[in-house]
Design a protein around this nucleic acid. Structure first.
Lengths: 352, 352
DNA sequence: CTGAAAGCGCTTACAG
DNA sequence: CTGAAAGCGCTTACAG
């Protein structure tokens, strides 16, 4: 026999302020103690199937939602982590952030968003608030693998994982495997029959520019090809530099039949400059970019082949690794470089 | 006389697991009850200045950080809100999100990030987790003002504010004032001496395309000018459409001396197409875009004038309004359209 | 001015 | 199998 709904007034008027049901309400409705409710809903300590069923039914009927604050107070786990990022524009951080969140939500872990730009005071403020909220850990997501996010993370008692940002050596840091990504691009160009692959990339002060250029030079060297342009051409991460670089390369004798670009914006500049010179892409020159920033890569004429850093997956792994650390698993500190993939489009001979 | 540090072992060995100080530790150190500590740190109930100073000093010395979980359990306020967004790419949502967070952090309110794409199950999952965590309210940030984020928000007992997404009429919704933004652009072009301003915009199924086009037509009508192209040209939000639209407009007799574009990508296509035809921008034709998406607007040749929707400010206001609702202030439901601003660059005669 | 006590909603030994 | 009790860290009437 079901217990009557004593809370109900029997009328159709909905309660004006429907106070959320607590474990006490469930206990009362199921005719058991709150301890039994807790056990039925969680660890499932021994009890008759009937009791458990009764509790579960009562919980469902009352739309019982356990209060995570109370639970956390006891368990010393908030099931929340902080996500600190200095990438305001968000081109790199956003996929990473989505990945972190995606990896954690299945485990009931929520993510606090903390965008801090380059303001250390703001960063500290976010950090304080998060620590008061008892976050179980922190993900630091940057926009450059060779830069620190502007906040002092030393002395934290919660685990920290870095993504796309420089981390202390005793921490875990996730980043794309730049060299592998660059090699992928170069080998793709060589496989397409190109033998004079130039490299037009960003400023030399960016570690990724160096790494991608070294990988480029490495593959050419190993294959016995020389470097059109006389070496990697370092410039800015901009379309304008793509234009300038083409002017420079085409002023020379030994013109390339392919250009590997440091990012998609440079690649776009290169493609536009080539078209304006009447050089056919991909017929005369193949072009590959880096970042696979779809909104750019899809609109170049022709669409741009590009290396994808799989930032979302990077974020997912970072989130899951943080979770492992939180759960006391011991995780090797150091840098984890995750593989890139190549998205082939028309600019390097893919489908038009 | 200061009480001695009874916790300290007197040696230089740091505690291996420095359990965070609680209100009890502070009380012990200050030689008062926990109730007094609480009062000294918060509402500041009456007490001698000496007592208060002693408590404050003890708290500082122990780096005491009040546990927000415990505090929230009692106050029924978590000082956290949820931010639900379906904008994965994040071009629009990210500034909004940063604004929300920025507006709230000063009030000690944190933001849970929930990216849900178009997956209702995921959205529900995020919602459940947030409600368990006792969020004080929810911001729904979309990418289109005429679309719902895919989740059932009815029956929620916490306040909800919408930004850049369609909300129920009894809710508060923030969005840019599209008409005002468009007018700003058109009047700027007219003030620059243009008298044949065409409109090349996005798909007719987007409400913003309609609204911007109506504002365009309205200003022209009021000024007694006609509509080059015979009306607004609706197409796609793409560069390709910008090219096609120019082809279409230039095939006609009555060519425009200015083009108002529905977004910056269209504008870029228009500018490129004009240059390829040898039409000078801004000399022969002025161009204005919409979104002020800097990474595009700054790299067009010449740089693009564009309407800025001030998304960050939109987010800030949404956050603060949610806070007002949480605090029981009564806020008028309905749509709040916030003004846009115009960023003038070389494409409409601004500084080169 | 200050503190003992109750309570926020839950979990977890420990008895029965 | 089930429940009374203590406790997580805080706040807030209420006494003294």
């Amino acid at each position: 026999m079901e217990q009557p709904l004593t809370e109900s007034s029997g009328q159709d008027v909905p309660d004006p302020a429907p106070r959320a049901a607590t474990i006490h309400d469930v206990a009362a409705r199921a005719g058991v103690s709150i301890a039994t409710v807790s056990k039925a809903l969680n660890n499932g300590g021994r009890m008759t199937p009937e009791t458990r069923a009764r509790v579960l039914a009562a919980a469902r009927e009352l739309s019982f939602r356990p209060n995570a604050l109370a639970r956390g107070l006891h368990s010393k786990r908030s099931f929340a982590v902080g996500l600190l990022t200095d990438d305001v524009y968000g081109r790199f951080a956003l996929p990473v952030m989505a990945g972190v969140s995606e990896g954690l939500i299945d485990h009931g872990v929520s993510v606090f968003l903390c965008t801090v730009e380059d303001d250390p005071a703001l960063a500290q403020s976010h950090l304080d608030v998060m620590l008061e909220k008892q976050v179980d850990g922190i993900v630091v997501a940057g926009k450059r693998v060779d830069r620190l996010v502007p906040v002092d993370l030393a002395g934290l008692t919660v685990p920290v994982v870095h993504v796309m940002s420089e981390g202390a050596p005793d921490r875990v840091s996730f980043r794309p495997d730049e060299a592998q990504g660059a090699e992928l691009a170069i080998r793709h160009l060589l496989a397409g029959g190109r033998c004079r692959v130039a490299d037009v990339t960003g400023p030399v002060r960016f570690r990724v520019a160096i790494e991608r250029a070294e990988a480029w030079a490495g593959v050419l060297h190993e294959t016995g090809l020389d470097q059109p342009g006389g070496g990697a051409l370092f410039g800015a991460w901009s379309e304008a530099w793509g234009h300038a670089a083409v002017a420079q390369l085409w002023a020379q004798q030994d013109r390339p039949d392919a250009v590997f670009c440091g990012n998609d914006q440079i690649a776009r500049g290169v493609i536009d400059a080539l078209r304006e010179r009447g050089v056919g892409v991909p017929h005369d020159v193949a072009v590959v970019g880096f970042d696979n920033w779809e909104i750019v890569a899809k609109e170049t004429r022709p669409p741009l082949s590009s290396v994808d850093m799989n930032l979302r997956e990077l974020g997912r792994q970072a989130g899951l690794t943080l979770l492992a650390l939180i759960n006391g698993k011991d995780v090797q500190p150091g840098i984890r470089a995750l593989p890139c993939t190549l998205r082939v489009r028309a600019s390097s001979g893919g489908p038009a």
